[in-house]
């Protein structure tokens, strides 16, 4: 077989509806799951430093379990496993104008639960990066621990979180493809289905790859803009990552090092 240029070009610029819908789904799956993952990650990070032992144990156990098992396995357990055991069945949900199929709900739950464990570690490092003197200053003014965390530590930690959070979202855009294992019609599965009808495997998946890279590249620009704005606002020390380095690498990325360096 040869590379069919006209097929390729046609697919790239005039994709079938299933491709477009798959791509749209990939984006909103990633956005919603990331948002939920951030919230869950913050909660887990706070629970890990709670004075209540059960909360600490739960958070540590959760992170251990989720980070120690593959996302593919988690997806199958959450969607097919829980239904097979009669625990919970994801049914179609009608939200006014939107209809959310069960598999999409399961996909979002899987990604959010998974991402929460990773975000928890990022949040923890970010919170730890805020100088101890900040908490002491807040508490010396009569703030309670919660208030010090909320008004003094977290606003500073959140700025430190932004760069790694951007990397997480970039990853999330691509990781959605794993949900094809439970039959979620996102971009990858749309490509696969199209492939089984046409057998133009190479052309189809190169187009899918191009779609993914367009999405992640657009995100890189958005991330740069967000970080520049935060920097301009002042009071922050986010390292300035050139877009070139963001897209093509070249910086030595040591997780945590970036966080520590930010203070």
């Amino acid at each position: 077989m040869h590379f069919d240029w006209s097929f390729f070009q046609h697919l790239l610029f005039h994709p079938p509806g299933s491709f477009v819908q798959g791509a749209i789904r990939t984006v909103y799956l990633a956005v919603i799951s990331q948002a939920l993952g951030v919230v869950l990650g913050l909660l887990l990070a706070l629970w890990r430093r709670s004075r209540q032992l059960p909360l600490r144990v739960f958070a540590s156990g959760y992170i251990w379990l989720v980070r120690g098992t593959p996302l593919l396995v988690q997806a199958v357990i959450i969607y097919d496993g829980s239904s097979a055991l009669g625990l919970y069945s994801f049914g179609t949900l009608n939200l006014g104008a939107f209809t959310v199929p069960g598999v999409v709900q399961a996909g979002i739950v899987t990604l959010a639960l998974n991402e929460g464990a990773y975000m928890a570690e990022i949040m923890r490092a970010a919170i730890d990066s805020v100088d101890r003197g900040q908490t002491e200053a807040a508490e010396s003014l009569g703030m309670r621990r919660r208030q010090a965390m909320r008004h003094v530590v977290l606003p500073q930690a959140m700025r430190v979180v932004i760069p790694p959070l951007g990397n997480e979202f970039n990853n999330m855009l691509k990781v959605t493809s794993l949900l094809s294992v439970i039959g979620l019609q996102e971009l990858f599965l749309a490509a696969q289905d199209y492939n089984s009808a046409t057998f133009r495997t190479f052309e189809i998946f190169v187009v899918a790859a191009i779609y993914y890279i367009v999405m992640t590249t657009i995100w890189s620009f958005i991330q740069s803009a967000i970080e520049r704005r935060l920097q301009a606002k002042g009071g922050t020390n986010i390292a300035n990552v050139p877009l070139r380095q963001r897209l093509f690498g070249g910086g030595v990325f040591v997780p945590g090092e970036q966080l520590r360096g930010a203070r």
Binding site: G133, Q134, A137, A138, S140, Q156, G235, T236
Partner: peptide, 14 residues
């Protein structure tokens, strides 16, 4: 009780 620190410890985001 007011407390003034050697390193100021001002809140940098404010």
């Amino acid at each position: 009780i007011g407390f003034v620190f050697q390193q100021f410890n001002l809140f940098p985001h404010l």
